[in-house]
Write a protein that binds this DNA or RNA. Sequence first.
RNA 1: GGGGAGAUACCAAAGUGGCCAACUGGGGCAGACUGUAAAUCUGCUGUCGUAUGACUUCGGAGGUUCGAAUCCUCCUCUCCCCA
Length: 307
Amino acid sequence: MAVNYNILTILGPTAGGKTSVATRMAYILNGEVISADSRQVYRGMDLGTGKDLEDYVVEGTPIPYHLIDIVDSGYKYNVYEYQQDFIQVFNDIQSRNKFPVLCGGSGMYIEAVLKGYKLIHVPVNEQLRSVLEKKPYNELVEILASFKTLHNKTDIDTRKRMIRAIEIEEYYSENPQLDVDYPKLTPLIVGVKFDRQSQRKRITSRLKQRLDEGMIDEVRKLLDRGISSETLVYYGLEYKFITQHITGELSYNEMFKKLETAIHQFAKRQMTWFRRMERNGFKIHWLDGYAPMNEKTARILELLGKK
RNA sequence: GGGGAGAUACCAAAGUGGCCAACUGGGGCAGACUGUAAAUCUGCUGUCGUAUGACUUCGGAGGUUCGAAUCCUCCUCUCCCCA
């Protein structure tokens, strides 16, 4: 029985070659790419986020992409906004009879849209915050526990998150209607990965390459533009360690080693998320990164039932 | 050539007769995670499919002792200082 997939998802850990597979598929399917990357949304953050914009031209044809370069660096984007933006882009692509290819490595963003997390806009409640901020942590735990149903299951390991969690529950309790008009998605999910040893090698050589291409200058430019080092550190990985190098906290070698390790660990966490998705019922069809492109695309077409 | 310091698990580093299969940090592995998610947090990490269990470890070889990573002897190697 043929399944009518209405979206193709390409996921996988960093440095696995997802983008080229996604753009190739978009080229074949007359489609457009929707990025699922929590850091590529920022303008001016290219090398550090591994945007690979040159991959968006296949056989001389530019492939339209979405949710890349949509906000200024310095801004703090989040899942809620991502989901909203995704819905809009998805509907738009469908209305133009193009095929959407979701591609990225931000597990939570992917799951948020494929699973349709119920996220609604919860405004900041300054009054509530000022009250909660005076209370001890254990009292906050009790307050959060007092809500019958929890909509927000995030970590509450810090006071800040705890207060935000209560703020969200508080809002839900007063605004019970939370059904948003969510598009019906029937995704085919394909993962691209290499064996761990190869993955590590790829991460390291890609890191060296991007440093050669001027990744440090990119970060320096952001600092010059007035983005605080705290914000850059918040962005993590490349932006975090390179900023610490620029401010003199880390030598070049220390920066390189720590960053390399951090990216390896990040790739591992990405895989942990994907495995969890599989346990939770998402079928991910894994492709060996070493397979040639035509083999990958043939396999995906086969899975899509277009062969 | 003379003097001194040291060799501990993947790495660094505690431990200096029993409470040591060995503190701790890093790394590695596994996991949690719906509003920071490139974040944050948790567990495991000598071997034995489980173990209040067994077995093998603290440079090597001997020895002392009821008992050694810890004490003694010899050997090998590393580092530092003076020549």
